[in-house]
Design a protein around this nucleic acid. Structure first.
Length: 519
RNA sequence: GGCGCUAUCGUCUAGGGGUUAGGACGGAAGAUUCUCAAUCUUCAAACCCGGGUUCGAUUCCCGGUAGCGCUACCA
């Protein structure tokens, strides 16, 4: 059984899908699924100057990536098609003319200059900056003649002589005095309809029951309610979602860094993390203590009337926390698969840099299965400690290259290198590795490694950091890093693989280090 | 300038006429580990201001302030 709940997400294809819109889409989607209602995607492209098809494609891709689907839309059609406003222009014109003939609207012949002057005057006199209503009293037949004669007139709605009220699920009853709402333009003199008009026509014709959107529309709502009333149509429920702000409390924009869904995807943020975080921005479950929600759990727990009206600051750290959580929770195969492009990009661009050429895209190297398996092991080892997947290559850099000279010169290692027992540890450890048959064959096992370390421990009389820091520095170039038990097999395996750049085995690392150390 | 919306730890929030004002992120400290990360434990941290109502307001009402939004023949 389907309820009569019908909601829509209605973006303008004028840019990338950003977190504010994504959150609006999410809340619409969750509400629709929860009420077993219908989710509609509608493209609001009446601004022909700024709308672009590529943005529409991008929008669709981003929504799909988030896992938010729709039941009716431009790509799949539906009973109220078309779902792209540029394909509905006739519908808008008809309704505008109807309003005009019913005397609910009138033709306005004021020029931009006149209107601009009115606004300036109102501002100077501290009055409401609304249209004077100069053309309101014009005779309709006379106006029609002027229009027919080529004097382009815009169609304006007559705002009623009473206060306009509507209900908002997140804010309660809202009332605007008619004194402060200007007679809105419905149809421009060019014949193109205006947002405040088309949105109502579409929402009404598409039987939208709940308009869930950003609160930047709240001041427009009285104009829209007036359109519903003029047309004699029922007014839907509204839910205006608060603005998402940047850390400086200003409206979130590109200036604040990553804000588009595509960017988050490229950074290796998982869609479930983003959905979860966005849901927490302005909504909390009853009790307010639970934070982790999958999309389906959200459908169960979400409640539109628990949405908070106050603006929320976007906190990247908390998103990262959720992302870490989902990275750890996800099956390794999936994470390994997602991580793969970051490694290949990194490996290839490093190769290119070494060769002195520009790295190209797509990357001219596809890792064969033994390499992908090996990279998966690296991911398993490193993924729990990254905020996002694109940090993996950086974390793994100690596997891919180990520069003994740089390690010796690094100020980070100076203290370790100067330790009282360091040289004894280095001598003992390097001697054993260089002589070890397993290590020579690049087949050193963690067990054998452990035995060697224990022998060094006794011979050099060093333990704890004194023992391990120098060993780490020899093997990885840094005194901190992942557990040896897991790292050693990765190093050894990597040294047998056909990679664009050879990965050094433990033996080779010790050799290189000692060479640099002695000179 | 006009109108509107909003106001609990740094941030996201729960709560609500009498509470030790709860949780989470981040921060600090500790435990653990050879190290970093992860993990676990602990700690610090908030009711915007002023009136009113009330025995009692952070909670209800009014005003102020601040932030944001709208103020287009943009969406």
């Amino acid at each position: 059984m389907t309820s009569s709940v019908r909601v829509r997400f209605a973006p303008s294809p004028t840019g990338h899908l950003h977190v504010g819109n994504a959150r609006t889409a999410l809340f619409n989607w969750v509400f629709a699924r929860q009420k077993r209602g219908t989710m509609i995607l509608r493209i609001e492209d009446t601004d022909i100057e700024r709308s672009q098809v590529r943005y529409e494609d991008q929008l669709v891709a981003d929504l799909k990536w988030l896992g938010l689907d729709w039941d009716e839309g431009p790509d799949i059609g539906g009973p109220y098609a078309p779902y792209r406003q540029s394909d509905r222009l006739e519908i808008y014109r008809e309704h505008a003319e109807r309003l005009l003939n019913d005397r609910k609207a009138y033709l306005c012949f004021c020029t931009d200059e006149e209107l601009e002057l009115e606004r300036k005057l109102a501002h100077a006199e501290h009055r409401q900056p609304i249209y004077s209503g100069k053309c309101r009293a014009l005779d309709l037949d006379e106006s029609q003649r002027r229009r027919a004669a080529g004097e382009g007139g815009a169609i304006r709605l007559r705002i009623p002589e009473h206060a306009i009220r509507f209900h908002d699920i997140v804010r309660g009853p809202v009332e605007f005095s008619n004194e402060v709402v200007s007679d809105p333009i419905l149809l421009r003199s060019s014949g193109m309809p205006v947002y405040n008009f088309v949105v109502v026509i579409d929402d009404a014709l598409m039987q939208i029951s709940h308009v869930i959107r950003g609160d930047d529309h709240i001041s427009n709502t009285p104009k829209q309610v007036a359109v519903y009333e003029a047309l004699g149509w029922p007014v839907p429920e509204f839910a205006h979602l608060s603005t998402i702000l940047g850390a400086d409390r200003e409206r979130l924009s590109k200036r604040h860094g990553a804000t588009s869904i595509a960017t988050f995807r490229e950074m290796g943020v998982l869609p479930e993390a983003l959905n979860n975080y966005l849901a927490l921005l302005g909504w909390a479950p009853h009790g307010g203590t639970r934070e982790v929600f999958s999309l389906s759990e959200l459908v169960k727990e979400f409640s539109l009337d628990r949405v908070t009206p106050s603006p929320a600051v976007f906190d990247m750290e908390k998103l990262y926390w959720l992302n870490r959580h989902y990275i750890k929770e996800a099956p390794l195969e999936r994470i390994a698969q997602l991580a793969l492009p970051y490694y290949t990009r990194s490996i290839v661009s490093e190769m290119a840099r070494a060769a002195g050429v520009e790295p190209s895209e797509p990357y001219p190297w596809t890792p064969p299965p033994p390499v992908t398996d090996w990279l998966a092991k690296i991911t398993l080892l490193l993924a729990p400690s990254v905020d996002r997947l694109d940090q993996l290559p950086e974390k793994a850099s100690l596997i891919f290259h180990c520069d003994a000279a740089a390690a010796l010169a690094s100020p980070d290692n100076a203290e370790v290198l100067a330790g009282p027992n360091t040289s004894a540890v280095i001598e003992a450890f390097s001697g054993k590795i260089l002589d070890d048959p397993e290590a020579k064959a690049h087949q050193l096992t963690p067990e054998r490694f452990k035995t060697i370390v224990n022998e060094v421990k006794t011979e050099a009389g060093a333990k704890g950091k004194e023992l391990f820091h120098p060993i780490r520095t020899i093997v990885t170039g840094s005194h901190s890093g992942p557990e040896f038990d897991k790292l050693i097999p990765i190093l050894e395996e990597g040294s047998h693989l056909a990679l664009p750049r050879h990965v050094l085995s433990v033996h080779e690392r010790v050799e290189a280090f000692m060479h640099a150390y002695r000179t």
